[in-house]
Simulated assay, not measured.
Amino acid sequence: MAPAHVTESDGTNPNPPLFGSLAYLVLNLPVGIASFVFVVTATSVGLSTAIIWVGVPILALAMLVWRGAARLERQRVNSMLRTYIATPYRPLPEKMSDQWKTRVKDPATWKDMTYFLLMLPIGIAEFTLMVTFWSVSLWLLLLPLYFGFLPAEWSPVIDDHPVLAVDSAFEALPYAALGAILLAVSVALTKGLGTLHARYARAMLGPSARKLDAMRWDTSTSGFAGVTL
């Protein structure tokens, strides 16, 4: 594998773009479902059949898959959240048996697995917040434009009193103003969650601070830091 390069972008404060953050946070739900199902299913089957040795290759394959998925996730974070994450894995020796021992003893392997297990609850929360805030804010903001196309009984009723009853574009303006405020909140929330997830992904999928300092030292002395995926 090609060596990972420690660049100036690594270690800086993440500043993800708005729409990149929005797309990333929404996609975390299907990514979280797929990754959680795979890790739980593969490890459960592998551990339950390890006593007859059938589970050993299953666990080995699962480990390779989630390490490969972590590599793709680093690229996804880099492309959508503009946050570079250095490769954290220990260099692999030439002997095949020693390579597997290195993978198993490497803390980055188990951090990758933990990241994908936690992606499901995190993805549910991020997806719910994004869909709720953006849909409600845009619905209110654009209400003066489409209220005339709504059915007559569209307004919800509480205690026999209609809520959000709008009969003209002028009556819809206060709701549009509220929608503009919520839209500003949605933008700030999206940027904030994108930044938080970028930091979280760097902490879970990247090297430790100590290893990163060592990689930077290698970069300054030899031009790059060699880390094998």
Rank of each mutant, 00 (worst) to 15 (best):
V166L: 07
A23Y: 13
L47S: 11
G11W: 06
P207D: 02
L205G: 02
P121D: 03
P30G: 04
L173S: 04
S155L: 05
F19M: 12
G226A: 15
N28S: 14
T49K: 05
E73R: 06
P144K: 06
P151A: 07
M1S: 12
M130T: 05
L129H: 06
L205S: 05
D106S: 01
V65E: 01
A225W: 03
P151L: 01
A2P: 15
A225R: 00
P151G: 03
T132E: 07
S168H: 08
P207L: 02
T83F: 05
E94K: 14
L182N: 02
E126M: 15
T195E: 11
L164M: 10
G179P: 02
N15W: 08
G148N: 07
V104S: 13
R74A: 03
A50I: 08
W100D: 02
A214Q: 13
R90V: 11
T12A: 11
V54R: 03
A42N: 00
L196F: 15
V131R: 03
T132A: 12
E126L: 14
Y24C: 02
T221E: 12
L229P: 08
T43Y: 15
G226Y: 15
A108E: 04
A214P: 04
T228V: 11
T43R: 09
H197T: 04
F36P: 01
K95H: 14
I158V: 15
P174M: 05
H5E: 14
A69T: 07
L193F: 13
Y200V: 00
A23M: 10
Y24G: 02
V37C: 08
A214M: 08
N15E: 10
I124L: 11
R67C: 06
A2K: 14
T132F: 15
Q75H: 14
P91H: 07
M1K: 09
I51T: 14
F133L: 15
Y200N: 05
T83R: 03
M1V: 09
G68N: 08
